[in-house]
Measured scan of single mutants.
Amino acid sequence: MPSETPQAEVGPTGCPHRSGPHSAKGSLEKGSPEDKEAKEPLWIRPDAPSRCTWQLGRPASESPHHHTAPAKSPKILPDILKKIGDTPMVRINKIGKKFGLKCELLAKCEFFNAGGSVKDRISLRMIEDAERDGTLKPGDTIIEPTSGNTGIGLALAAAVRGYRCIIVMPEKMSSEKVDVLRALGAEIVRTPTNARFDSPESHVGVAWRLKNEIPNSHILDQYRNASNPLAHYDTTADEILQQCDGKLDMLVASVGTGGTITGIARKLKEKCPGCRIIGVDPEGSILAEPEELNQTEQTTYEVEGIGYDFIPTVLDRTVVDKWFKSNDEEAFTFARMLIAQEGLLCGGSAGSTVAVAVKAAQELQEGQRCVVILPDSVRNYMTKFLSDRWMLQKGFLKEEDLTEKKPWWWHLRVQELGLSAPLTVLPTITCGHTIEILREKGFDQAPVVDEAGVILGMVTLGNMLSSLLAGKVQPSDQVGKVIYKQFKQIRLTDTLGRLSHILEMDHFALVV
């Protein structure tokens, strides 16, 4: 994948999101292997301009796509893939009243899908469409860049269908997702969380590099694949309309690839034109409109599966009536509230959605109805927002919020430890010299600072030695090549209790 991002070429006709291997024109390309080798690009942008032909009021008969309808489940399912879809609609009884809503608040519980998330729908649909058009064949390999849930859905379907599955996901995604993927037989590649989507090191860039190296491999490409919004247009939206008897006044959905909100909203605009569509985008993402909503100094966020630093091709923002931004604290607070007060075992993005819903639905009156999409299960986040310690460490809970008995030293300040200034190293000294210094002084790690004293990161003896043994660096290389740029900081005025929580999850903390 090139470091400079080429513009994806656009073909003359058809839909841009065809499933299957992508040609340089962004659509299915038939021909000899030699032709494909000559024409197939190194990668295709996940934010390529959409060429979708959908228009409100256009006859369904003019759609270029294969459409399906929700099917009634048999008493005995032939395999677990038949437990994807037909998820329950559940009334939220307490939270709406707590925040003064007059309307009825309903939750579409997508964590009841077989793999635990709304992404099971698009995973199965992308595979079925690729099999139907002859792209996927027995023994082929599926590769997908994902925040985890699409990966789980694909790995689940691949396990049943017999495909090899490789999932490329950023490091910030939970260990629970990784464990589930491994249990399903998927191979996992992790990428830096802070890598831009168009960087060769991003999950998108690495996935395309693997595709170019592995024979008979395919990126189904949830960011561009029409099967993504079509899955929701054909099934999720129809289920909502049936469950609500066609009567709903507002739908609120958090947005990642945009397939969920695009597919549902398009069908609702056709069948229930008075329904307002509300999009939820986390602070630090750029999906919301108008652009002024996205202006923030924050560039990272903890909530998973929603928000991006690019506009995915499948996201149709014209069908969203209003956007709201959400933050991590309210997302996790509301997710825990949904679990504790409503018994809905949902993930953090569901918290984002409901946090926005109780604001947006203030305009609705008694007798009206708001539906929220709860995308995934708490299963993926047992060591994250479900953990009091994690919430404390991230600053989303305060010590006084917890009532468990603490040891005698818990409320003492870090400054009472009488710490001395640490050994520091410059980023320009060599790895070999740094190892000598650390061994001589008896230290395992040291902060790396520039000549102005600005902290650049941390270097550890173990990481340097393993990097040297693996051949990633040489003793003569500058130590700046092996620094940890993500590390926890703590102030002298913070409590030892807070430091204790940090050290339970990290090997060190830097006192500043």
Rank of each mutant, 00 (worst) to 15 (best):
N194C: 08
E144P: 01
K102S: 01
I143C: 01
T193P: 10
L81C: 07
G100E: 08
S3N: 14
K72E: 11
R45N: 09
K82C: 07
M173L: 05
A114V: 09
F197G: 05
L101H: 02
T193M: 09
E213I: 08
K94Y: 10
C52A: 03
S50C: 01
V160F: 03
N225F: 00
S227Q: 09
I95N: 05
E213P: 06
A130F: 06
K119M: 03
P170S: 04
F111A: 02
R164W: 04
T135A: 12
R51Q: 10
L136G: 04
S27N: 14
E270M: 05
K82D: 03
P200K: 08
E62W: 04
L241C: 06
T260W: 04
D129V: 10
I214R: 06
L210H: 01
S19I: 08
E62M: 15
Q242W: 05
W43H: 09
N194D: 13
I214P: 04
S50V: 09
H17W: 11
R18T: 11
S63I: 15
I166M: 12
L101E: 00
T135W: 10
G96L: 05
S147Q: 01
R45A: 13
W43R: 12
R190T: 07
A130P: 01
R91H: 08
A183L: 05
E144G: 04
L230C: 10
T68Y: 06
S147C: 01
R91Q: 09
L56G: 04
R190V: 08
L248I: 13
D238S: 13
P70Q: 10
P21T: 13
T13I: 09
P88A: 07
I122Q: 00
G151K: 01
G246T: 11
A231N: 04
D79I: 09
E239I: 05
L124H: 11
K267M: 12
I167G: 07
D238V: 10
V10Q: 07
R18D: 12
A157W: 08
V160D: 02
H67G: 05
P78F: 06
K94M: 12
P170Y: 02
A107W: 02
E104S: 13
I214Q: 04
I219K: 01
A71Y: 11
P88C: 08
M169I: 11
S254M: 04
D179T: 07
E34S: 04
L156Y: 02
